[in-house]
Each structure stands twice: as C-alpha cells, then as structure tokens.
C-alpha cells in the first residue's frame, strides 16, 4: 500500500499554507461583512478518515448541529470534499450579519449560503497558495437538526482515505463563531498534494 503519511516538513508546509489561506479568507470576509474578523491560527490534524466520526461524536452530541458538504476539483488531480460542521445556534448570528433576517429564506438555504461563503473563500485562498484553482460542486446539506448526523458522517467518510481536520474559530467584533471544517481528500489526491508540497518546499 502506498504511504500516504506526510513528512514533518510537508506537514509544516501545509500548516503554513493553510494559515495564509485562512488569513486571506478572513480579510475578504471582513471586507464583505464590514466587520472585524479575527481568525485564530487554525489547528490542523491529519487523520484517518475512518476515525473522523468518532472524533466529532463527543463534540456535537445532543446539540442542534448542521453538516454541509462542498466538493471541489482542482488541476493536477487535486480533489476533495469539505464538510463544515457547526451548531445551529451559531448560524443565526452569521445569518443576521449576512442580512438574512429581511426576507423569507429557508433555513437550508441560509445554511448552504453561509457554508459556501466560509469554505469557498478559504479554498480559493488555499488554491492560490498551491498555484492551483478550484471549481466547486453545489453545496449540500447532509444533515441538520438531526441526531443521526454521526452515522451520516460515517457514510461520507467511508469513501475517503485521508482527512485533514481543520478547526476554525472565526471571531467577529461582537461575538465568536466556532465551526469545524473537515477536508476529505482521496488517496491519489493525497499523493498529488504531497508532490505539490514538495515543489513548494523546493522553491524555498
């Protein structure tokens, strides 16, 4: 079996690229939302995709949470799926900022809008760092207000070998918004990513 694990250098490089991508994303979000957005340095973890559901079980158990998926394709065989997890309670605050209180919008629509704004701004930044560009599938609500979301996450994670877990905390001026982003990347794309990271490292 091919070795999918990252060297320490590759891991540091990826963390650095993600940090920069997050910085770009928060800058764009701040301009768009007209508010100060502070992003903590995201904690990343590379884990076996099969372990993901168990890791989130405790954190979201019994809470009204939402899980929204967004698939992406890049050049050079890079592809994956991002899953954004957050508590619905948090969603209301962002929704107000985005102006979602003034017309009849369904909850599902609001959730997909929030998620696609948060994930695509980040992924666009990451693509830029990787000298790549991504195209996106339409976001889908996998689960909402639903206690069974861990089992749905299990079904999704099953298709992927490696998961890049990124814990993100967006802090806006008046409140904080916590969410978890999971980047799921299939095995062959992990190899592509490793090659890309090596190229980035070679340039320094």
């Amino acid at each position: 079996m091919t070795d999918l694990s990252f060297t320490e250098e590759q891991r540091d490089c990826l963390q650095e690229l993600i940090n920069v991508a997050m910085g770009l994303a928060s800058d764009k979000l701040a301009r768009f939302l007209n508010t100060f957005v502070h992003l903590q340095v995201p904690a990343i973890g590379l884990v076996n995709a099969a372990e993901i559901p168990e890791q989130f079980r405790g954190q979201y158990q019994g809470l009204n949470s939402s899980m929204i998926s967004l698939g992406f394709f890049g050049d050079g065989g890079l592809r994956g799926e991002t899953i954004l997890l957050y508590q619905l309670e948090n969603a209301g605050k962002i929704a107000a900022l985005l102006g979602y209180d003034d017309d009849a919008t369904s909850e599902a629509e609001m959730l997909t809008d929030i998620s696609s704004i948060l994930t695509t701004t980040f992924l666009n930044g990451l693509a830029e760092q990787l000298d790549n560009s991504f195209s996106y599938a339409a976001p889908r609500v996998i689960s909402s207000r639903d206690n069974d979301f861990i089992s749905k996450l299990e079904q999704t994670a099953f298709h992927w070998q490696l998961a890049l877990k990124v814990d993100i905390r967006y802090e806006l001026t008046d409140y904080s918004f916590d969410c978890n982003m999971i980047l799921l990347i299939p095995g062959e794309a992990v190899l592509k990513l490793k090659t890309i990271l090596d190229n980035v490292l070679a340039d320094f």
């Binding site: 979000l29 301009r31 768009f32 599902a108 629509e109 997909t112 704004i117 701004t121 666009n124």
Partner: peptide, 22 residues
Amino acid sequence: WLSRKLNSVLSLQSPAFSSWEQ
C-alpha cells in the same frame, strides 16, 4: 436575496449556488 448573493460573488470572488431544493 439574489442581489446580496451576486454581490458576495463579486466582493469575495467566490462562487455561489442556488438549488431547486431550496
């Protein structure tokens, strides 16, 4: 709703979506 979404596409330079299901 739509002008808000289109403006987010322009200012964030990120794509947006709308699904018939919603």
